[in-house]
Amino acid sequence: MMLILLPVFGERFYIQFASKILIMIIFVSSLNLLVGFTGLVSLGHAAFFGSSGYVIALLSPIGTSMNLFVALLSSVLCVGALGAVFGALVLRTKGIFFIMSTLALGEMLFYFLHDTAFAGGSDGIYIHDRPGFNLFGWWQLDLSNVSHFYYLALILVCLVLMLIKRIMNSPFGRVISGIRVNEHRTKALGYHTYKFKLVCFVIASMIAAISGFLAAVQFGVVNPEMVGWHASGHALMMVILGGKGSILGPVLGTTTLMLVEEIFQVATKHWQLLTGIVVVLVALFFPNGLAGLNFPKKRPET
């Protein structure tokens, strides 16, 4: 309820900040699909987040605005194709090798966007006319309006969370969980695990594309940093902080970390130091994250 009413009462800054959190929730959820549900620790997931932004920035015509649905769909499909290529490569490896090769491929994309002229180099590209949507001429969705943007992000978050829940409850999701727990056994049951992992990887990249699309449209700019591995590492922190492998974990982890970081940033210039300490402590002492915390219940007195 509070989430729906926020734009009515909230100030511009808070609405924007809340939208940022919503965008990150989508991204972290897509990573959680890999890390938490399938057991694939990817350090290059930001490649899909960032490249989605680049797709929309390169496609956007100057002067007119694109139809929102066409824009979103083309982003998601392009990134899905990229995800299929990357996935087909990195899924040939396992464990620690997988971590290293995802990171390396993500960085390859970073250098590609950073070094070539058409992608605007280290400055990135501006999106001058954001995609919009016109409902039969009597209502216009304007994404430069912070409230409109917020509602779009909120709706997409709900859709994505429902989609992930649906996937995990389907027979496909069962196989995916089986791969996480014991891949050899799942294989022995007759499932072609490589194909299942690849499909899951592509789905995760497409969901990441939704968040990348929103992030690019929110401030109308993309830059190579969106693809870099620190963005992936940051999302990974949120996954484990919230508790991997639960639908609501990313919501909890993302919101908490972003709020905490905002407080740190106000408190000190060296906020990354504090973030680092928090991450180390969480990973060492609360490996199951906030969702896995068991608050000791009061024992009934005897």
Binding site: L236, V280, L284
Partner: peptide, 22 residues
Amino acid sequence: DHLQQVLVTYGLILIFSELRSM
């Protein structure tokens, strides 16, 4: 598991880069 190793050492990266800056 590898995920926790990645996160602890990633936290160390943040700490060291900030200490270096300080």
